[in-house]
Computed example of a mutant assay.
Amino acid sequence: MSKFLNMRFNLMPFWLLLCFSTPRSVCCDYEVTQVVSSYYDMEDYQYVKKFDSHIHINTYDTYFIDLVKKDNFKFLNIVDDRPFGLPMEEQEKVAISHFEDFSDQMIFATTFSVDDWENDNWLSKTISHLENSFSKGAKAVKIWKNIGMDLRDAKGNFVMVDNPRLDLILDFLSKKNIAVIGHNGEPRDCWLPLDEMTFSQNYYGSHPEYHMYLHPEFPSYWDQINARDNMLNKHPELKFIGAHLGSMEWNLEELAKRLDKYPNMDVDLSRISNLQLHTIRNREKTRNFFIKYQDRLIYATDTSINSSENPEKIKNKIHNNWIEDWRFFATDHKMNLKGHGSFRGLKLPKKVIDKIYFKNAQKKLGFS
């Protein structure tokens, strides 16, 4: 019997022999280290490569670049065709200027104007503009909410994102393998009374002209979503990123339906408060959503940097937001969502964090 036991002992794996031959506390520490190594913690924030896929830089100042370097980020600077703030042409000049100087830290997305939508030469001018932007480094094209919420045709009808006139542009982008970032519609709050909104009371209370609940003659929330879905039906090969959780921030089941149906659709995560609210309501369900769709989710904040702001103040604000987002995704620390309650972070595995914070954006946008 003694000889048999000695033979069995000699065949044991080295790590198991180590546990038999070392104090219990050392063995237990080894096992805990093996478990913890599958996850990041707060100390890892500084060392992990990260990418923020939704930034708007509206200044030639470079203080934001300093923060990006310090926090080990790269980012996508997005140009919008919006009727306020810095004009589209100037936004693009700013983007190109920063890209030329800091290509290791950033890439940029261009857009196109619809001011002369009804002109016969609109299509050729638009494609020429896009080609020029790509030659200067643009990696994606943004379609903003003015298509669907502002632009009208000669008959006064709203132009939606599935309008046949846009098909030629989308076919062109699909053939060039260029990703489209779609801000289609608004959060569902936009179509709700103020007292039924989740997070948007202050904004729409101060800007009733944008509060669609007060403008029932405008396209509805589902009009916007259905038009976006129809556009994807018509262009199944198009690389598409739905900005702000595809404007489906209120319902993960509805978002999941789209991710299942449209394999080339990803979404950026730039309504993280909604994700935290989902976590308060059902943490396991929210975490499982991230695990299941880990290849389709891209970290984003929708941060704007303007010349009128105090550089140190805005840097601190952005840094703190990035830190808290990391806490939410990478740890199970206790957190609080103002007005809604406390919750624990999702503590996603390292491989999931690496995807949503860098690899998914890299794959979709084609940067090194």
Rank of each mutant, 00 (worst) to 15 (best):
L5Q: 10
F14S: 03
L17T: 06
L18N: 11
C19V: 06
T22D: 04
V26P: 12
C27P: 07
D29W: 15
Y30E: 14
V35E: 13
V36F: 14
Y40R: 04
Y40E: 04
D41G: 15
M42H: 10
V48C: 03
F51C: 06
D52Y: 04
D52E: 02
I55G: 04
I57K: 05
Y60S: 05
T62M: 07
T62F: 00
D66S: 14
V68W: 00
K70P: 05
D71L: 05
N72S: 09
L76T: 13
D80N: 14
D80C: 14
F99K: 11
D104H: 11
W117A: 06
W122R: 07
S124G: 05
I127M: 11
S133K: 10
G137D: 11
K139T: 14
K142S: 15
K142V: 15
K142E: 15
W144K: 09
W144T: 15
K145L: 12
G156S: 04
V161H: 13
D162V: 11
L170M: 08
D171P: 03
F172R: 03
K175W: 00
K176E: 08
I178P: 05
G182I: 08
G185T: 06
E186R: 03
P187W: 02
W191I: 10
L192E: 06
P193V: 05
L194P: 07
E196C: 07
F199Y: 08
Y203S: 05
Y204M: 12
M212P: 05
P216G: 11
F218S: 10
Y221A: 01
W222C: 06
Q224L: 08
N226Q: 14
M231I: 06
M231L: 11
M231T: 04
H244G: 08
H244L: 09
H244R: 00
G246T: 01
L252Y: 00
E253L: 01
E254N: 00
K257E: 01
R258T: 01
L269G: 02
I272L: 05
I272A: 08
R281G: 01
K285A: 02
K285Y: 03
F289C: 01
F290I: 02
A300T: 04
S304H: 09
S307K: 12
N310C: 08
P311E: 06
E312R: 13
K313P: 05
I314V: 15
I314R: 15
K317F: 12
I323S: 09
D325P: 02
A330R: 06
D332V: 08
H333P: 03
L337H: 01
K338M: 02
K338I: 03
R344Q: 07
R344N: 07
L346D: 07
K347F: 04
L348M: 02
P349W: 00
K350T: 02
I353Q: 07
I356C: 06
Y357R: 03
K363V: 09
L365H: 07
